[in-house]
Nucleic acid binder design. Structure first.
Lengths: 206, 206
DNA sequence: CATGAATATTTCCGATAGGAAAGTTTCCGA
DNA sequence: TCGGAAACTTTCCTATCGGAAATATTCATG
């Protein structure tokens, strides 16, 4: 299957963003092309062309660029978007970002889910003896941390037997695995969920 | 300045690791080269060569590989080390990884901090009216989420005025900013802290 | 063993990355 | 406005990437 046209467009756009990101990053650090070239060990012209999207760098050049820029290689691949500012601090009093309802689950986002922020903490309440979503399991990219704040919770996991957690116990899992929470008692259960930032692309089955 | 010899060796090694990582990732997902090629839109031979480190992929190919593998592009650049397995699930009963003591703070890691895992959740108790660490603030790469499980906590932040959080309130901040927790009441305070995985490299000043 | 089907590798060649050096632009200070 | 230095871009050429197709390998089944 050849890539769809829109995918190719995405790819072009992605590559263009990478190019400008590289230039912005360098300029934000107040480095010249030459400095980056020397520190990283690549040609000046190469950097010039890469930053203007006239050339698609190979793995080696990315590694050298990262060294030249003084950043971790992986950092080059984090998209911008709305960003959590370096040095940023956010306090969450309760209910600031509103309460959301699904069938048997009420939750609030403790902080807005902006890009660049690595975690998305949520706090929620499960109705007594009810599953969070009746029809099917949830699955998405990233990892998930669940802490039972109050009550007893049953976690259904795709391809595994259920896990029951008491107050104070927690679970850490790859959220690509289908999952579903339910209160395992005749009272509401309160939980804290922290997800790593959702990826824009659809999740892949492992 | 040309790259030092050992840097070149690092780069070779890094590229080799990338190659095997790509192969491992594909095999872990049970995908054939052909499937990845079709879904991503690249040639079979290209993938074969990349995975055996006979070719250094360009940005475009990385983007397509990521799509073919069904992972986020940035994910390809996370080094292995001890890895949180794809699809992994870990349950934390209490005290499994031992309790750690600093001056006025007792905490436990809820899950081991292996590489590839994006979050490091910890639960701790602050002594009444005492600061976590008397001498100086803590600062490290990544982001940090603090939830007050019980009590009232004062957070000292470098270059900002203190933040006081009540039970159920939380704080999210760039943990490069110096920080220090303290109980703000005459009783111990219980907190949950989730850090993003510590980076091995020192953070770069922007 | 044979046979075939599925998967991976090799070969070959056109397209493109990437470096050296020359050329251009920008931005001062006199 | 004239050097002239610093920063960036272009040019040109070789090395390498990357795809199509041929070849090899692996693996199940009789």
């Amino acid at each position: 299957m050849a890539p769809r046209n829109e995918d190719i467009l995405d790819e072009q756009a992605s590559r263009a963003r990478m190019a400008t990101r590289l230039r912005n990053l360098r300029e934000a650090k107040g480095l010249t092309i030459q400095t980056v070239a020397e520190r990283g060990g690549l040609a000046i012209s190469t950097i010039s062309k890469i930053e203007r999207n006239l050339m698609a760098p190979t793995y080696d050049r990315f590694a050298r660029l990262a060294r030249g820029l003084g950043v971790d290689l992986a950092e080059l691949f984090v998209e911008d978007g709305t960003r959590f500012e370096p040095g940023g601090v956010a306090v969450a009093r309760r209910g600031e970002y509103g309460y959301h309802e699904t069938e048997n689950y009420t939750y609030e986002m403790l902080f807005p889910a902006v890009r660049g922020k690595r975690m998305v903490p949520m706090m929620g309440t499960l109705k007594p003896r009810e599953r969070m979503q009746v029809d099917r399991m949830v699955s998405h990219a990233g990892e998930e941390f669940l802490l039972v704040l109050d009550g007893r919770v049953r976690v259904e996991l795709d391809g595994m037997e259920d896990v029951v957690l008491d107050t104070g116990e927690s679970l850490y899992f790859d959220s690509a695995r289908g999952h579903l929470y339910a209160s395992a008692q005749d009272a509401p259960a309160r939980i804290l969920v922290v997800c790593t930032e959702f990826d824009s692309d659809e999740p892949e089955r492992g």
